[in-house]
Simulated scan of single mutants.
Amino acid sequence: MMRPQFSSDPRELLGKCALVTGGTKGAGAAIARKLAAAGASVIVSARTMPTEAMATEVILADLSTAAGVETLVTRLSQQGGSVDILVHNLGGSSAPGGGFSVLTDAHWQEAFGLNLLPAVRLDRALVPTMAARRRGVVLHISSIQRRLPLPDATTAYAAAKAALTTYSKALSKEMGPQGVRVLSVAPGWIYTSAADAMVQEIAARRDIRPEAARQTILDALGGIPIGRPAWPEEVAELVGFLVSDRAASLHGTEYIIDGGTIATI
């Protein structure tokens, strides 16, 4: 698969401060690079320091806990800066396969603690300042699994992402009249380094070529009409547009980027 390349106007987000959670890997890192290339001052949060140097500032915090969110908010306040763009990219699932019956309370709590509550807590801390200035953009990264859950292993993850989308819509109704735009993006399969590692593992385990291993995943998803997953940079392009002034009238809506995986309107 050919990785796409995009250009950016380095003045589009000049003077804006952006915070991207989970911004050191995959789509989060691509989003952080995109916003920085568009002129924003970008801060990313992560649980561990990335192995590769980043052009953006990294604040270490475990946002799956209330204490971690407080750590991040404290660091931001110490720097005296206010956030103009808040991208909630943090999320994921480590639940075992086997369907709903193997999911314990701990699995459910972990899913909501990683995919919903960090956004709720951070918004509660940072959005009031946006409202006081009557400007700002909040963007939640959801998932098409909120509509197409994979019951073998991601029931709790899908439910948490559905809750995130619903929460995002409710927040948009409250904050729109106060000058803050709120949106969500629902990606399908994104070809991150973790996705590639999964493809390579399947290929090695089944003694097949990586192309065939990718096809097994496509088949499990019910097919992707364009024939491939999205690249992180493509998700970042959508996010970069949505948080810019070019999208000033877009609010309270979820945008799907899945190559046509969801077959219905």
Rank of each mutant, 00 (worst) to 15 (best):
A212E: 15
Q178G: 15
I59M: 04
L218Y: 13
D123L: 09
A204H: 08
L19K: 11
A95P: 12
V69H: 07
A67W: 01
A18N: 09
R147Q: 10
L63C: 11
D258V: 09
K161Y: 02
L242F: 01
A186M: 06
G259F: 07
A119H: 07
S142Y: 08
G97H: 04
G39S: 05
E174H: 12
L250S: 08
G92N: 04
W189Q: 12
T65N: 10
T166D: 09
A27G: 02
E254H: 07
I256Y: 11
H251I: 11
L35N: 02
L242V: 02
A159R: 03
V73A: 15
S101H: 09
R214A: 14
L250H: 11
I59S: 01
A195V: 12
E201Y: 03
E57L: 09
Q200P: 01
G99C: 03
L148E: 13
R246G: 11
R11G: 01
L86F: 14
P118F: 03
V87T: 10
M175W: 08
V127K: 11
A37F: 01
G22T: 02
W108D: 13
Q5E: 04
A131T: 15
A111N: 01
D105H: 07
V185P: 10
Y255C: 01
D245Q: 15
R206H: 06
Q78V: 01
G97S: 08
V185H: 05
G259M: 05
T104V: 03
V20Q: 06
S64M: 03
T65C: 09
T155L: 13
G39P: 02
A132F: 13
N115K: 05
S41R: 02
R147N: 07
W108Q: 14
G252L: 07
Y157S: 15
I224E: 15
Y191W: 09
S193T: 03
L139C: 12
S94F: 03
R147E: 08
L13R: 09
V87C: 10
I43M: 03
L116Y: 00
L139Y: 04
L76H: 06
C17L: 05
H251Q: 14
L139M: 06
S244E: 07
T51W: 01
A95F: 06
A40E: 03
P149T: 08
E174W: 00
E201D: 12
A153T: 11
I208K: 02
S249V: 12
R47Y: 04
Y167L: 09
T165S: 15
A194I: 00
L63P: 14
S82M: 09
E12K: 02
S64H: 02
A248G: 13
A156S: 14
T261L: 10
S193D: 10
A195D: 01
A18E: 04
G113N: 09
S244I: 08
I31F: 02
E233V: 03
V20P: 00
V42N: 00
A263Q: 13
I217F: 11
A40P: 05
L63N: 11
